[in-house]
């Protein structure tokens, strides 16, 4: 369980986050939704201490992370970024085994784990020795997820993981993520600016606007009881899109 309590962060005059409080239960998939500059990426990076807050506290399973070694902490948390950020000079297998190697696993265990993960993310063994630039965008993102999960992280952070993918690949990978999240019983926080993605994927959605939480709720709650005008605009936009598509297909 992740407890974010009264967290604030500012960059010079810009207040990126204002007093944000949020609880993510074990096994939950939470989407953090907002436009660019809303502070959603900052919120995500606070969890693995790529950024430290100015005020407030974050606890994982009750332990405040401020007192843990950030490098050790990050090795226990899966992290996936847009366009994967794979190491271009390493093969798929080497990329996936990044954290296990940092943790000093033995070679045989790492090999077995890489095979296992390739299967989990739906890639076959022929991809093992390829380099990132020999993969499609979707394949790269699958490797990115496999790399994040390699050291059996129970907590997965994703920063707009599907943002740069074509629609068909995106929808396929969204389904895969949902499946992996459930099968491995992960606790997942995903940052997105896509309302439809948040609605269809997340257990709960956090709406951020200029560093403030506007609403936290299930997709149904957001659609039926938006907390304010901003959230209402977001949901009505999604509904209009759905209606428009329904009209076309009718």
């Amino acid at each position: 369980m992740i407890d974010i309590v009264g967290v604030s962060k500012r960059y010079g005059d810009v207040r990126a986050l204002r007093h944000v409080t949020l609880q993510v239960a074990s096994g939950e998939l939470v989407a953090v939704l907002g436009e660019s500059g809303s502070g959603k990426t900052t919120l995500l990076k606070l969890v693995n201490r790529l950024i430290d807050p100015d005020a407030g506290e974050i606890r994982i399973d009750g332990h405040p992370i401020a007192t843990t070694d950030p490098v050790a902490l990050r090795r226990t948390i899966g992290y996936v970024i847009q366009q994967a950020g794979l190491f271009p000079h390493w093969t798929v297998a080497r990329n996936i085994s990044t954290v296990p190697r940092l943790l000093g696993w033995d070679a045989a265990t790492i090999r077995a784990r890489v095979d296992e993960l390739l299967a989990v993310v739906g890639l076959d063994g022929s991809h093992r020795d390829r380099y990132p630039d020999q993969l499609s965008g979707g394949q790269r993102q699958r490797v990115g997820v496999a790399r994040a999960l390699a050291a059996r992280a129970r907590l997965l952070l994703l920063d707009e993981p599907f943002g740069a993918l074509d629609p068909i690949t995106r929808v396929a990978l969204q389904g895969e993520l949902r499946r992996i999240h459930r099968e491995l019983a992960l606790t997942t926080i995903m940052v997105t600016h896509d309302m439809v993605e948040a609605l269809t994927l997340a257990d709960r959605i956090v709406v951020l606007y200029r560093g403030e939480v506007r609403q936290v709720g299930t997709p149904v709650e957001l659609m039926t009881r938006p907390a304010d005008d901003y959230v209402a605009r977001l949901t009505s936009m999604a509904r209009h899109q759905a209606d428009a598509i329904a009209d076309v297909s009718a």
Binding site: N48, L50, V71, A72, L73, R74, R75, T76, Y79, I81, Q82, Q83, A84, G85, L86, F87, P88, H89, T98, V99, L102, R147
Partner: peptide, 22 residues
């Protein structure tokens, strides 16, 4: 690429490891 460096840090590489390995 800054994204690659961020990924390296996010994976839990120390400053020295980011430098040497990436």
């Amino acid at each position: 690429d800054p994204a690659v460096l961020e990924a390296a840090r996010g994976m839990g590489m120390s400053r020295h490891q980011v430098l040497r390995q990436v």
